[in-house]
């Protein structure tokens, strides 16, 4: 996650100190990606070293306040005008697990799929409950809108995962039917009652 760019973008609003930056970040994203304040200060130190932010003295309570530099502003502008890199897909444990499940003998792929589908559905129910209990979807408050969009992103990702699992299940079952047909030469594969694939849950 681009903590660096996110903090820079927040500083573009006004100079802030570490705790303030964390609060502003979490207000927009819920507690979806919790930031610890140590991480915030480490990042600020690195940004200062690279000339993207500069110390702006202390406030009345002694907090060290940071402001963005012109170089920092240019970095934020570049971030917003460049698409997130998708050429290297992030490592996906579920995809790897299924790729192995369909090739390693003795794994009940149907059960692997269904267990995951239930778990992802439970998460999707949680997100939806948060949406329902949350603030008005059409709220004009910027932070509320930001949080709603983050939540929607989680909803769409979970939905996509379930759709992909449905697709995997259909493919696995079809493959099992085709294999069974090949193993019985002389029997018409079309029109005959297909045996239930052993890997399917039913």
């Amino acid at each position: 996650m681009s903590v660096k760019q996110a903090l820079l973008a927040l500083l573009e609003q006004e100079p802030m100190y570490g705790y303030q930056l964390r609060a502003e970040f979490e207000q927009r994203t819920g507690a979806t990606w919790p930031l610890n304040v140590g991480q915030v200060y480490t990042t600020l130190t690195r940004l200062e070293r690279d000339g993207l932010v500069a110390g702006a003295g202390s406030d009345d309570e002694g907090h060290v306040v940071y402001r963005i530099t012109d170089t920092g502003r240019a970095e934020v502008a570049t971030w917003f005008t460049t698409p997130v890199n998708r050429t290297q897909p992030p490592r996906d444990e579920l995809a790897i697990k299924l790729a192995l499940a369909v090739t390693v003998p003795g794994v009940d792929v149907g059960t692997v799929i269904q267990q995951q589908r239930s778990a992802t559905m439970a998460a999707l129910q949680d997100y939806t409950r948060l949406k329902r209990s949350g603030r008005a979807p059409a709220s004009s408050d910027g932070a509320d809108l930001a949080w709603t969009l983050v939540l929607d992103s989680l909803v769409f990702a979970a939905e996509a995962e379930i759709r992909w699992l449905d697709h995997c299940e259909a493919r696995v079952r079809r493959a099992a039917v085709e294999r069974a047909a090949q193993q019985r030469p002389g029997t018409p594969s079309e029109g005959a009652a297909a045996p239930r694939p052993s890997g399917a849950t039913s």
Binding site: A122, L130, R135
Partner: peptide
């Protein structure tokens, strides 16, 4: 299969 409902604590309230 069936998924039940349980109160949310997976995510904090915004």
């Amino acid at each position: 299969d069936e998924t039940g409902s349980s109160p949310v604590d997976a995510l904090l309230e915004p």
